[in-house]
């Protein structure tokens, strides 16, 4: 009789123990979780100075700094094709349009809500600025504008620069600039 009670009692303990959530909340770190071990309370650890991740060796000075011989580069570090422009368009829409607006005039939603108004991309000075300048502003910030180097990949920053060039062209385009095969459609009355 004793034995039966013992077995029953033990299995009850077993049943209750299985209510524990060990496998739900495993003692491991997931990205961005907190930590009581590190002094700054983060499980994400900063990269040690001088560490180079595989495939991330940044030995192309032009690509990484946007400068050549200490001056803003006048050329892009890689060929710009339609795919690059398309990428630039989408990244510009995500990261720049909230303030600089879709056309680059500097009237974005956040500016309308009180942010300092940036100059239009369509003033002469900025139309004459080399690509390296725009890359530099995104990488290091400019005045009250913070830098975006932690959120936009290097290649994407160049793609955005290329797209800003497109905007500058488009906002100052004359009818003569339209390719011959597209002129016809432009002349048609709007539907």
């Amino acid at each position: 009789m004793r034995a039966i009670f013992l077995i029953l009692g033990l299995s009850l303990v077993g049943v209750l123990a299985s209510c524990r959530q060990d496998m739900h909340d495993q003692p491991k770190y997931k990205p961005q979780s907190g930590s009581s071990f590190f002094a700054d309370g983060r499980s994400n650890r900063p990269v040690l100075a001088g560490t180079v991740a595989r495939g991330r060796l940044q030995d192309d000075a032009l690509l990484v700094t946007g400068k050549e011989n200490g001056e803003f580069s006048k050329v892009f570090p890689f060929p710009v094709d339609a795919a690059v422009l398309e990428r630039g368009r989408s990244r510009y829409g995500i990261f720049c349009a909230p303030c600089h607006d879709a056309s680059g005039a500097g009237n974005g939603m956040i500016v309308q809500r009180g942010m300092k108004q940036p100059l239009s991309f369509h003033i002469d000075r900025l139309r004459d600025s080399p690509p390296g300048y725009f890359f530099d502003v995104m990488t290091n910030g400019f005045g009250v504008m913070y830098d975006y180097s932690d959120r936009i990949e290097i290649e994407d920053r160049w793609a955005i620069t290329a797209y800003i060039r497109v905007l500058q062209k488009a906002q100052n385009a004359k009818f003569a600039d339209v390719p011959a095969d597209k002129k016809e459609t432009l002349l048609q009355p709007p539907k």
């Binding site: 990205p31 909230p98 809500r113 009180g114």
Partner: peptide, 29 residues
Amino acid sequence: RYCHTSVETSAQASLPSTKTCMTCHSSIW
């Protein structure tokens, strides 16, 4: 993606850093 930057490229969507909030809130509110 302005805030959940890694959602297209990794398992985590990731929450924005404080710096992301400050890109606007250093100047407004």
